[in-house]
Each structure stands twice: as structure tokens, then as C-alpha cells.
Design a protein around this nucleic acid. Structure first.
Lengths: 341, 341
DNA sequence: GCTCCCGATTTAAACGTTACAAGCGATGGG
DNA sequence: CCCATCGCTTGTAACGTTTAAATCGGGAGC
């Protein structure tokens, strides 16, 4: 193997300069005379020099590391966010520490502790349950936070989210335009903020169209799975009298379609179905889903950019940083389960 | 906010001891007298002390960070591995740096550079294309490597993989037992090692059963997608005379079933189909897939454990580390697309 | 010829931790 | 009563960088 790379001092010795000069050619090359710079560069790759991140972090007090905290990386929604995050982090020269917490406070605490120890420049947190009070360990060491897929309350920090209320409105607007006013909602537990918001959007759109929101059939499931959807579909078919179904999830939509089919109700002929999320599932099934599409990658990218901006703000201006709350708009993608008029 | 946490020395001052003692209660508590230990602990959380990972890393020369290098975190296969990796890393007290390279050498180089700078304890690499010669940057600084989902060649390092040849055999064995000997293979490009191996397994099993492998109909697709599968299914239906189809991918299997259905060939009644991977797709479709299931989480966990062991080996024994190559066995999970006899 | 200044380089002090070698009472054996 | 021992604690030198301040030759201005 190659020589033992023992740091700046070895390079300096070989190039016949001081470590300060080497450090300069590394960080501010314009300060050092072209001749010396050349000599140093030669020594640098002669010795296969690799900077010690630890030493830099120690000296400067910051590391180029951001934490990405998600409940479950197996979930395609979070995976898509991670995709956007890693891409943006790469571009900005940051490393991403992946923390999967499965909504387990103990795990989360350990991970935050680790991030704090590394003096991570920041953390992108995609919360599942509401309790966001355990972020104190990070705050304490000055780690910046960006909340993802949830709007930050005042002073919690920056956030990047997607407008679920609008998403709900888009879905219902489409269903109303396409068919009659007899809409059903298949939703997850309303304690989940996203579910509550999508429902709110649905009701708002009904009201706008002069339909009493309370006439909307509402089915609530515990687990937002295909099976639960299927059962909901069965129930809807039994009750009858539904023009369109809005499911707050692509899994539910897939299940509902099957449940309706069980009872001979054909989609989209007898009833239209709109899903939410635009996961692979939406296109992979036998009947491509009309669904609300969320800019997941963009949200991930923006989260990183927001964080980087926040860090920058603090560093070069002593000036106050204003927390920002970015809200992206979802869009409706029309496919076969609720085709265009 | 709480007090400025300025390190071991502040704690030492408050507790009336030296920094060495504080360091000891942190790292080897049994060395320090209970009374003092108590006093130090009190000071520790009075000041909200948070260790500086950078200083520790600098002093000790190692960080508790492992890199996870995957082509694409959006792909459920890699996501599952990541899931296993993060779980095991958590347990072992390591952080996971997620590096998504999209098979782009430039990106990969930058990420390796970053890992090298952090003096990552190791890296878990899930390679897509074969070229594994760019790992030199890491090797140079003594970063340990574990190859995942590919068997390491001699001296490349440790590896953890799944036996694709066996997987191919299981699939074909099931098809042979279930129906006749007229098997078709729908495969991706044979330049992908996994595809080549699964095919090899299929042929081997045919031979074992006294069937000439060359009688097997082989269709090769460029992209292993549902659409490609569907076209393959159409082609198979047109050609006819097939008892069972082995697809080296769940996407292909899903597509093939649809392609066959297009032509009126019903699965599993007229032909059986076996997929590979056991992704969500296998259960989410209208016809649950019989498929080869891979222990993805286990592979991820084991990769971390292998790495940790390798690091341990080097540290406490000066003794030689023997590279290990772990090979897991896939299993066949029987569902509706090729039900039990 | 003397100053003054300028760009290029160096000196040296941190940053927060670890770990070795040494210090320090007190205890117990001779 | 002295010396070796023991359990606990401490002084201090690293680890590899960055950076403010000091240094050093000259060339220009007078």
C-alpha cells in the first residue's frame, strides 16, 4: 500500500514549507504564490494526503453533516424524500446521517445524542407522531432543525411541507366535476395531521360547490392498508349511492377499487376513485390510479437548501435569521380510476 | 437556553477534579471512586455536557461512522437493506452515512472522499455495475469494506450476499413439480450478475430433472419493468406451449401475468408464474405472486455485524483478519400465481 | 540611503479529548 | 518505624487542523 499519510505536517516537510502554507493552499489558494502552491500540490498528492475531518471539525467547531430523521426508510414516501435529500446534500458537500426511528422515542433519543456529539450542522426531521419536544438535545448544541412534511409552529424552526388541504380540494374538485355530488371519503385516523388536513380540504371544496360537507359519507380505518381499503370498498358497495370516492392514500384507493369490484361495482364506470400520494403503487396496478401527486423529491431538496441557508445566515450575518415555512402545492394526476371528463 | 457547554474542562472545574477524571468516569467508570464519580456525574448534567465527537475522533483516530453506499434508495430492495443496516448500526452505536450514487462514478468519488475524510470506520457497498476498483480512496485511509449483495473476489474484503443460483433453482423446481417441463425464463440483461446467476440456477435445476436446459424458452429484456414484462407475456402467449414462467424480478412477473391475460392465457390456471424478490409489489397486486424471497433485512444487519467484527479483529488482536463471505439462502414463498400442487 | 509598505510565509496558540506516567496519601507487612 | 503496595487522582503531551499575529525580504518613494 501507499505511504502512511500522517497529515499536514508531513506534506509541509516534503514541500519545504510550514503547515500554515499547506492549509492555505487547501482553503484559500489565492493567498499563496503560484510557485509554492505548485510545490505544495505536488507534495499533497505525492503523499496521498487525505484531510482529517475530525481535526477540521474540532478546530472550526462545525461539521458538514446533516441528520435525516425518518420513521421508516422502507416506506416509499420517506424513501423519496431521502432521495431528494441525498441529492441536494451531495451538491452542497454535506454528508447525510440516516436515522430511522420507527417512532420509538428511545431510538430517537440515542440518535439525536449521536448527532449532537458529531456537532451535526443540522437535522431534517420528518415527524410521525406529534411530540416534537424531544429535540432539545440538538438545540442545546446549536444544531439547526428543519421540519419536513409538517408545518413548524412559531419558533420551532424552519419547515418544508406540502399543502394537504389543497390536495384534498383538488381530489374532490375532480370528483365533483366528473360525476355527481355523492362523494365518499375513506380516511385514516384523524389524529394524523395529514389525514385531518386532507379531509379538511375535501370538506372545504364541497362547501365551495354548494354541497353540505356533512352529506359526505366518511369511513375511517385504523391502518391505511390495501386490506382495510378493500373492506371499506365492500362497505361502500353495500351502502350504494356513491359517485366518487376520495381515499387519502394510494393503498386505500387500491383496496377500495378491489372492494367495489367484489360487489360488482366497476371503476371507473360505476364510480370514480381518487387516491393520494402517487407512489409506484398508483401506476403499477392493473388500473392506473388518479391520485394527488406530491413533490417529494423537491421537498427533500428544499429541506436541505433551507437548512444550508439557515446555517449561512447565522455564520456570515450576525443578523437575525427569520424562520421560513415553505409550502409546496400538490397536483392532481389523472389516470384511469377517475379519468378526465 | 441552558449554559454554554464548553467541554470537559468546565465540568472538571465544577466538580473540582481534573479533566482526566472526568474522562475516566465517561469511559471507564469503574476506575473512579464512587464518591467522586457521583460528583462528576452531577456536574455533567448540571452543565448539559455533550461530548465532542470530533475531539474523540481526532484523539483516538476512529469515528463511529459507517457509510452505506447504494445505487438508489428509492428502490425497495435497497431500502430494505438500508432498514436492516440502520437497525444494526443503532444497536452497535454507529451512525450511518447514506450515500446514493446512481451508478455515477463522479458522485461516488466525492462520497468516498467525504467518507475517507471522516475516517469512517467502514463502508457497506452495494455495487450496481461491476467496477469495484474505485474503492482505493477508502482503502488508503484504512476504511474497512463490506460488499453487499455481491460475493467478494479474493482480497476484495468481506461480503454478504444471497445465493441467486439457489434462488433460480427453487423457482424452477417449483414450476417443474407443479406443471410440465415446458418452462420459460424472462430475464434481464445477463451482464447483471444477479440475472446471470438466477438463470444459471434455473438451468441447473432443469438439468437435474433430466430436462435439457436449452429447451427452455428465454426472453431477455433491457429494462426489468412491468411494461417490458407485459410485452414478454404477449410474446409468450403468442408462441404458446408454456407450462410455467420464471421471471427474475417481481416487476417482470407482474407484467408477464398481464401480458398473458391480454391474450386470454389465465394465471395460474393455464400457466404458472414465479417472480423474484418478494417486494411489496408481490402482495399488493390483484394476484399475489409466488416469488423467491430474499432475507434483505438480515443481509443488511449481517453486513454491519461483519464490519464490526472486522474492525474488532484489527483492533484487539494484532492477529490476521480472515475475510469472510457470507451467503444467505433465499426461500420460495408460494402464493396464487403458482400455488402449491 | 533610509523609511515604509507590501505580499508571502511562518510562528504559535488554540480546539476538546484521551491515556500514559507519575503523584499522593493511607495501609499493612517486616 | 520504614518501605513497598495499593487505590485513586492528576499533569501533560499528544491528535491534525485553522488562524490571528508576527516576521521577513525587498522594491518604491523621498
Amino acid at each position: 500500500m501507499t505511504k502512511k499519510a500522517s497529515g499536514l505536517v508531513a506534506v509541509a516537510r516534503l514541500a519545504g514549507v510550514s503547515t500554515a502554507t499547506v492549509s492555505n493552499v487547501l482553503n484559500r489558494p489565492e493567498l499563496v504564490a503560484p510557485a509554492t502552491r505548485e510545490r505544495v500540490v505536488a507534495a499533497l498528492d505525492e503523499l496521498d494526503y487525505v484531510r482529517s475531518g475530525a481535526a477540521v471539525a474540532l478546530r472550526t467547531g462545525t461539521s458538514r453533516l446533516v441528520g435525516l430523521v425518518v420513521p421508516d426508510i422502507t416506506n416509499p414516501f420517506y424513501a423519496a424524500i431521502a432521495e431528494g435529500v441525498t441529492a441536494a446534500a451531495d451538491d452542497a458537500g454535506y454528508s447525510v446521517a440516516l436515522c430511522v426511528n420507527h417512532d420509538d422515542p428511545a431510538r430517537e433519543r440515542r440518535q439525536f445524542e449521536l448527532l449532537a456529539q458529531q456537532r451535526a450542522a443540522g437535522a431534517l426531521v420528518v415527524p410521525l407522531s406529534a411530540g416534537s419536544s424531544r429535540l432539545s438535545t440538538l438545540r442545546r448544541v446549536g444544531t439547526h432543525l428543519v421540519l419536513v412534511d409538517r408545518i413548524a409552529e412559531r419558533d420551532e424552526g424552519c419547515s418544508v411541507a406540502i399543502d394537504d388541504v389543497l390536495g384534498g380540494r383538488l381530489a374532490v374538485r375532480h370528483l365533483l366535476a366528473l360525476r355527481g355530488p355523492r362523494i365518499a371519503l375513506v380516511n385514516g385516523p384523524r389524529t394524523i395531521e395529514q389525514c385531518a388536513n386532507r379531509r379538511a380540504g375535501a370538506r372545504k371544496e364541497l362547501r365551495r360547490s354548494g354541497v353540505d360537507p356533512d352529506t359526505m359519507t366518511e369511513l375511517t380505518v385504523e391502518e391505511m392498508t390495501i386490506d382495510a381499503g378493500r373492506r371499506a370498498g365492500n362497505a361502500l358497495a353495500a351502502a350504494g349511492g356513491v359517485d366518487g370516492v376520495f381515499c387519502t392514500n394510494d393503498q386505500l384507493a387500491t383496496g377500495v377499487i378491489r372492494g367495489l369490484a367484489d360487489a360488482g361495482v366497476r371503476v371507473p364506470d360505476d364510480a370514480a376513485v381518487v387516491g393520494y400520494g402517487d407512489l409506484a403503487l398508483a401506476t403499477d396496478g392493473p388500473l392506473p390510479l388518479t391520485t394527488v401527486s406530491q413533490p417529494k423529491l423537491l421537498m427533500g431538496r428544499t429541506a436541505v437548501e433551507t437548512l444550508v441557508r439557515e446555517i449561512g445566515d447565522q455564520v456570515d450575518g450576525g443578523r437575525e435569521h427569520q424562520h421560513s415555512a415553505t409550502l409546496f402545492q400538490p397536483s392532481l394526476v389523472v389516470r384511469d380510476s377517475a379519468p378526465a371528463t
